[in-house]
Design a protein around this nucleic acid. Structure first.
Lengths: 147, 147
DNA sequence: TTGCTCCTCACGTCACGTGAGGTGGC
DNA sequence: TTGCTCCTCACGTCACGTGAGGTGGC
């Protein structure tokens, strides 16, 4: 797939994808000679979608995102090692530990965001409650005639 | 309160506050002669805290935030009109309608964000579940000796 | 008077947007 | 060959960060 299709598929712009490649956040698809078209796989699309979602939802900078991306890259390597028949059980246990550590970190960021969102929502709901109260007072003080 | 204290209190920077004033998002506290110190009230602090929270949590641009701010400004005016003894009951009803419309709009943005966050979380949890599964498989295949 | 905080430019930076001018594949 | 999408500069923009040089209040 070419860069335009990738952008459409993950809901971003061509410029953003090129920029992420520029700052080393995204590998430039496969290696290519200067001026040649960039090509991407469905796997690249998954990866990018993931990054954009983390950035938008968790509100982290591209620098912080780079760390997450490094985690994801490491994850891919570890996954391969895990699958290799030659890998010892002890080593496999450590790989699983590492996977969990990465996931826990992301889950904690999600939890933190959710807590903030919950508080905002409860405040908005409380305000709406007060508006309803006023409305009830108005009804009690001067009921509207039925038509 | 002066700008430094305001910044500390709402968790932002002096520069950001000045910038928001520059683009007309924030009234510059009370009117002042050029070069004089800006002063703010606790009410200004509330307002700014609100704006920053909406921006960070809902991920909206300062342009969109300006609309919300306009809503908030309108709200302050309407609130005063509501309190005025001369305001008719019918008018008060319409003011309450307006308050609710504004709150509903913000609540919907919150709901949308929450849905996205929920999906991200469920995917992370599912991944963690798969890791746990692998771990169980390892234990079954080659149990670790008790020490 | 000394510190601290404030002020106004004004240039720098991050994360892209937006052409300009040119090349590559169905 | 015509369209479309792609390419590489490179300058513009948004939302601030970061000094430079100077003034104001406890």
């Amino acid at each position: 797939m070419r860069i335009g299709e990738l952008a459409r598929e993950v809901g971003t712009t061509v410029r953003t994808i090129r920029y992420y490649e520029e700052i080393g956040l995204l590998a430039g698809g496969t290696e290519r000679v200067a001026g040649a078209h960039r090509t991407y796989t469905e796997h690249d699309a998954e990866h990018l979608r993931e990054l954009i979602r983390l950035k938008e939802l968790l509100g982290i900078s591209l620098d912080e995102l780079r760390e997450v991306a490094a985690d994801e890259g490491a994850r891919a390597l570890l996954r391969e090692e895990f699958r290799d028949d030659g890998t010892s059980v002890a080593r496999r246990r450590r790989i699983l530990d590492e996977f969990e550590r990465i996931l826990e970190r992301q889950l904690e960021l999600v939890a933190r965001r959710r807590a903030q969102l919950d508080q905002l929502e409860s405040e908005l709901l409380e305000r709406r409650g007060r508006v309803e109260l006023r409305r009830a007072e108005l009804r009690a003080a001067s009921p509207r005639r039925r038509t």
